[in-house]
Every structure is written in C-alpha cells, then in structure tokens.
Amino acid sequence: MSVGGADYPIWRDAAFKQLANGGVGAMNEASLELRDVSMKNLLATFGFRLAGFSAFRFDAFAPSDGLQLATASFAVDALSLKIE
C-alpha cells in the first residue's frame, strides 16, 4: 500500500511509533472499500486484522507535485470479504 499527500504524516508517525515499540502497535484493523465509478455505491469491503508492519519505506525525494510518498507492508493475521 502506498500513501501520500495529506495522509503521509499520519502513516509516517504511526511507523515511527511502531518501530519505537519494537514493531508492536495499536493499529490492529484496516479495511479497503471497493466502490463503483461514481464512488457512491459500495460494492465490497475487505477487512484485515493486522499483525503489525513488516516493512515501511519513505521515498527519498518528493515528486514534482511536492507530495511525499511512503510504502507500507503489513503482516496480515486474518482477512475477510463482505460483498454488498
């Protein structure tokens, strides 16, 4: 998963906090919503129970638009799919 723009500082700070705690943190669940092209209708939701970060990488430079980018890898403990 790659994050950038306004979400970048949130993910950066969460990664630093988990690293300070030896890789164990409070972030236990995440979800990914799949929507139609109008972005109004929810088609399905993937739910993840996370076992923590397995890797986190910051890009060394910002692209021409000035947005920094980070790539996060997670160890997944459980996965669910809910189809609407």
Results as ranks from 00 to 15, higher is better:
Met1Phe: 13
Ser2Lys: 13
Ser2Leu: 08
Val3Phe: 15
Val3Gly: 08
Ala6Ile: 13
Asp7Cys: 04
Asp7Phe: 14
Ile10Ala: 07
Ile10Gly: 07
Trp11Phe: 10
Arg12Tyr: 06
Asp13Leu: 08
Asp13Ala: 15
Ala14Val: 07
Phe16Val: 11
Lys17Phe: 09
Gly22Val: 03
Gly23Tyr: 05
Gly23Ser: 08
Gly23Glu: 08
Val24Asp: 03
Val24Asn: 10
Val24Arg: 15
Met27Val: 14
Met27Asp: 06
Asn28His: 12
Glu29Lys: 12
Glu29Ala: 03
Ser31Ala: 13
Ser31Cys: 09
Glu33Tyr: 06
Glu33Pro: 01
Leu34Glu: 11
Leu34Asn: 09
Leu34Gln: 13
Arg35Ile: 03
Asp36Val: 00
Val37Asn: 14
Ser38Asn: 10
Lys40Met: 12
Leu43Pro: 07
Leu43Asp: 01
Ala44Lys: 08
Gly47Ser: 10
Gly47Asn: 14
Phe48His: 07
Phe48Thr: 10
Leu50Ala: 00
Leu50His: 03
Leu50Ile: 02
Ala51Cys: 03
Ala51Leu: 07
Ala51Phe: 06
Ala51Gly: 14
Ala51Ile: 00
Gly52Trp: 00
Phe53Arg: 05
Phe53Asp: 00
Ser54Ile: 08
Ala55Leu: 02
Phe58Ala: 14
Asp59Leu: 10
Ala60Asp: 15
Phe61Met: 14
Ala62Arg: 11
Pro63Leu: 05
Ser64Gln: 13
Asp65Pro: 04
Gly66Ala: 02
Gly66Met: 02
Gln68Phe: 06
Gln68Lys: 15
Gln68Cys: 04
Thr71Tyr: 06
Thr71Ala: 10
Thr71Asp: 06
Ser73Tyr: 05
Ser73Met: 07
Phe74Pro: 00
Val76Ser: 00
Ala78Phe: 04
Ala78Glu: 11
Leu79Pro: 10
Ser80Ala: 09
Ser80Tyr: 04
Leu81Cys: 05
Lys82Pro: 00
Ile83Lys: 13
Glu84Lys: 03
Glu84Gly: 11
